[in-house]
Each structure stands twice: as structure tokens, then as C-alpha cells.
Amino acid sequence: MIIKKRNSFLRELMKNRYSYILVLPAVLYVFIFSYASYPYLLVAFQHFDYQKGILNSDWVGFQNFAFFFKSSDALLVTMNTLKLNFLFLFFGTLVAVAIAILFNEIRQKLFIKMAQSMMIFPSFISWIIVSYLMYALFATNFGIINQLITFFGGEGISWYSKPSVWPWILVLMKIWKEAGFGSIIYLATITGIDQSLYESADIDGATRWQKIRRITIPLITPTIMILTLLNLGKIFYSDFGMLYAIIGDNGVLYPTTDVIDTYVFRALRQVGDPSNAAAIGLFQSIVGFTLVFLVNWITRKFYKDGALY
């Protein structure tokens, strides 16, 4: 029986060898950077010494976790992390779904192709490039926005010294860069809806808005819920590349933009202790893991179709 199963597995590999070769880089990436890194979680409970290695470094228990939780900025960066991620998740999902519905309603194919290309293009621009574009927009002396304000008789604003506006600026930039790419999944879900439902609605005299509200949105809701659940697992992780590229070391903006990732990075850069960073990373992972299970349990209780399992 074992030999038969082994032979069938080998036949499957040979039959679809090109498909397995195609997926091999992704499998190796996940294995190396996700599963093979599990032993390094021990660093979170050690005073890690590069010369001694993981097995011989001194154990310190939960002292590395105290580094973060006893910090005066712990509450601030935690609340900023949650606030920004909730804003990104809510408005990003809302705009992505709206874009998908709009593309589905447009009948001019040439316009759809051009519009989709323009919407997806920002996803391939690095955050470093985006940060320079933003500086060209928001610079105090020569920024385009301030030039427009002064042109119409207003007074220029020192954007890089106003913490209160930056959460919303970051949300807008996040949507501009990623909502178009994110809409692809929802558009694929919409195109998979049985067209006979729309035909029946046409016979009943339903308007476009009524078809969207009664057919499209209810049928893509399970997809929205599942993607939301997956994103909740990263609610304690921020887009470090975006925040560090745009905000950098501008301490004036820290009250509203400093998150756990940037805080730990600065601490690691200043102190040079990887154990502290590992402890906070483990804390973020545990919270995200717990949130996914908790929200999935609530979803399964009230809306089974939107649950992961």
C-alpha cells in the first residue's frame, strides 16, 4: 500500500512537473522565511549573543517583552498601529469594492482596459518614489499644494509639522497605491456571479443600483469577509516600508504616525539588541493569530458564509 501511494505521488509529480517547478520558488520562499525561522523565536527569551548563538545565549525569560511594555511610548504606538490599520483596512476595502463594481458596470471594453492599467500601475511604484512625489506635493515652500493655496489667496501650510493631518494623508496614499490592485479579487468574484440572476432582475424591471444592492453586494460579501479576516491577522503589523519612507525620522509627526514596527526599528538601531525586536515581533504574531480565531468564531456564529472555517 505504501509503495502504491509512493508510485502514485511520483506519477503525479512527473505528470504535472512544470506546474510544480513553477510554484517551487514560492514554496521555498514560504519555507525559508516562515517555517525555517521558527527556531529563532527563542531569541525573544534570551539575551542573544552572536558569538554564542541561539543554543548557548543566556536566558532572560520575559525581560525583553518588558522593554516594550514598560516604555512610556508603548500605549501611543499601539494605538497608532491599531488606528492606522483599521483606517487602511476599512477605507481600502470600501474603495476596492467600489472600483470593482464600477468596472463591472462599465460596458466600454477599451476604457476598462485603460482604466484598469492606470489603477494597477501605482502598485508597482516603490514607497521611496512615492515619498519623493509626496514631498513635491506637500513641501512647505515649493510644494504644489501650497502653491495652489497661495495662488487662490490662502496661506501655505507646513504639512510636515502638522501631525493631525497625516493619518488621513497616509490613508489616501495607501488607497491610491493599493486599492486598484486589491479590486482585482472582487472583480473576479463579481464576474463569477451567475448572469441569470441579473437577467431575471432585468425582467422584473430592476435598476442598476437595485441589482448592485440586491445581487452584487450580497454575493461578494463572503469574499469581503474572508479577506477582512485574513487582514485582521496583520492588524498589529504596519506597512513599515510606507511609514519609514514617508515619515522617516521626523519626530514631529510621531504622535499620530509612530507605530510598533517603526518604534522597534529605531530601538534596534539605537540599542542594537535583536532580542527586543524578536520579542515584539512574537507579541504581534500572537495577537494577530488570536484575533483571526476570535473574529472567525464571531463571524461563523452570525454569518457562516463569511467564515474561514
Rank of each mutant, 00 (worst) to 15 (best):
L55A: 11
Y263V: 05
T221E: 06
F90D: 04
Y303V: 10
S37W: 12
G92L: 06
K15L: 06
K301D: 00
L24G: 04
P25F: 01
L137F: 08
K109H: 07
G288S: 02
Q284G: 00
F283R: 12
Q147P: 01
L137K: 03
D249Q: 13
M79P: 05
Y35A: 07
F283Q: 07
S126T: 14
G154Y: 11
Q195I: 07
F293N: 13
V27Y: 03
N296G: 02
L28V: 10
I145F: 04
M134F: 02
K234F: 12
S34R: 15
S34D: 09
L84Y: 02
Y18T: 13
T81K: 02
L110N: 11
S161N: 14
F88C: 00
G53E: 14
A66F: 15
F302N: 10
V43M: 15
I3D: 12
D58T: 11
I260V: 13
Q108H: 06
A188Y: 07
L187I: 07
V252L: 06
T262K: 04
Q116T: 05
R17K: 14
F293T: 08
I217E: 05
E155D: 12
D204H: 09
A26L: 13
I129T: 14
S158F: 11
S71N: 15
N231Y: 12
P222I: 05
W127P: 05
L84S: 02
D204P: 06
Y244G: 00
T93N: 12
I157K: 15
R17Q: 12
I235M: 11
A98W: 15
F151Q: 15
I260H: 02
Y29K: 11
Q63C: 01
I149F: 10
L94R: 03
P274G: 09
V97N: 03
I280H: 04
F289H: 11
I247H: 01
G92Y: 12
A115Q: 04
A66K: 14
P25V: 04
Y29R: 08
T216M: 06
V60C: 06
N141G: 01
V271N: 13
S275C: 02
I99R: 00
S200E: 09
T189F: 07
F121E: 10
G53L: 01
L170M: 09
Y237P: 00
A115S: 14
Y254C: 06
I125M: 12
Q51W: 10
I260M: 07
W297K: 15
M14T: 08
L28D: 05
V60T: 09
K177Q: 09
D249P: 00
I215S: 05
I185Q: 07
S37Q: 15
T150W: 05
Q270A: 08
L41M: 15
V43L: 03
V292G: 04
K83M: 14
M1N: 14
A201Q: 08
E178G: 05
I235V: 13
A307D: 00
Y135F: 09
F68N: 09
A245R: 04
